[in-house]
Simulated scan of single mutants.
Amino acid sequence: MAAPTKGPRLGGGPAHERLMLANLAASLITHKSIKTTETKAKRMRPVVERLITFAKRGDLHARRRVLATIGDKTVVHELFTEVAPLVALREGGYTRITKLGFRKGDNASMVQIELVLEPVTPKPKSAKKTAKAGASASVVADEVVVEEPVADEAAAAPAADETTEAPAAEDAK
């Protein structure tokens, strides 16, 4: 019976691919940026994203899950203590792949994959969203104006009673 195959295995069997991706992930965590082929980078990205998500959890079980993939305790410690706090507010997209061109020897497409460690900045609102927000703000402002006279009427009610009493006092004279 033929051995089952499911897609390319990056020059080896499944065990070789798993070890190679773990080594690439460890190098990426250590150096924060590595240069590799496009195929390896695309295959490594989900592995690294999953490891960083575990590191963000920070508990013992997550640390052991990462240690099952990356055997080096110093790399795992660096991931949990240095990388995870920097990406704590980021909801994914921890890596960036930038194309570099082609390798001279075999014309393989080369890329640089790096960890995105910059702080997250909120996206600027589009013109349509700001217009809707401005319209809803004016509606809220109108509602506030409507509510203020109600409060003034309660305060003005005793004054109205005084004015009604004053003409009654004049009629009594």
Results as ranks from 00 to 15, higher is better:
123 K>W: 01
130 T>G: 05
83 V>A: 06
60 L>D: 14
166 A>L: 10
19 L>G: 12
2 A>V: 00
43 R>Q: 10
98 T>P: 01
59 D>T: 14
53 T>V: 03
2 A>Q: 13
94 Y>E: 07
81 T>Q: 11
41 A>D: 05
64 R>S: 07
92 G>E: 00
88 A>M: 05
107 N>C: 10
169 A>H: 10
108 A>C: 09
161 D>I: 03
69 T>Y: 03
100 L>F: 05
1 M>W: 03
26 A>I: 00
41 A>P: 02
53 T>R: 13
64 R>V: 00
101 G>S: 02
4 P>V: 09
11 G>Y: 11
19 L>K: 07
15 A>L: 10
51 L>Q: 02
130 T>V: 14
134 G>W: 05
127 A>Q: 12
34 I>W: 08
92 G>Q: 00
134 G>H: 00
45 R>Y: 02
108 A>H: 13
117 L>M: 04
115 L>K: 03
101 G>P: 00
18 R>C: 10
46 P>T: 04
173 K>A: 14
109 S>T: 15
26 A>S: 10
113 I>G: 02
165 E>H: 07
142 D>H: 07
91 E>W: 02
144 V>Q: 11
130 T>F: 00
127 A>F: 09
145 V>Q: 13
158 P>R: 05
71 G>P: 04
48 V>G: 01
155 A>F: 04
57 R>M: 08
26 A>P: 00
69 T>M: 14
136 S>F: 09
5 T>S: 14
165 E>D: 11
102 F>T: 15
152 D>C: 04
108 A>E: 13
39 T>A: 12
50 R>H: 11
106 D>R: 09
115 L>Y: 02
85 P>T: 03
70 I>W: 08
82 E>Q: 12
16 H>Y: 09
151 A>F: 09
65 R>F: 07
31 H>Y: 15
71 G>I: 04
17 E>P: 02
118 E>Y: 05
5 T>D: 13
111 V>W: 06
86 L>V: 06
105 G>Y: 14
81 T>D: 05
101 G>Y: 05
87 V>S: 05
144 V>I: 15
53 T>E: 03
124 P>M: 04
61 H>R: 08
44 M>P: 06
103 R>L: 09
168 A>P: 03
62 A>M: 09
52 I>G: 13
130 T>R: 12
136 S>E: 15
157 A>P: 00
84 A>V: 15
39 T>H: 13
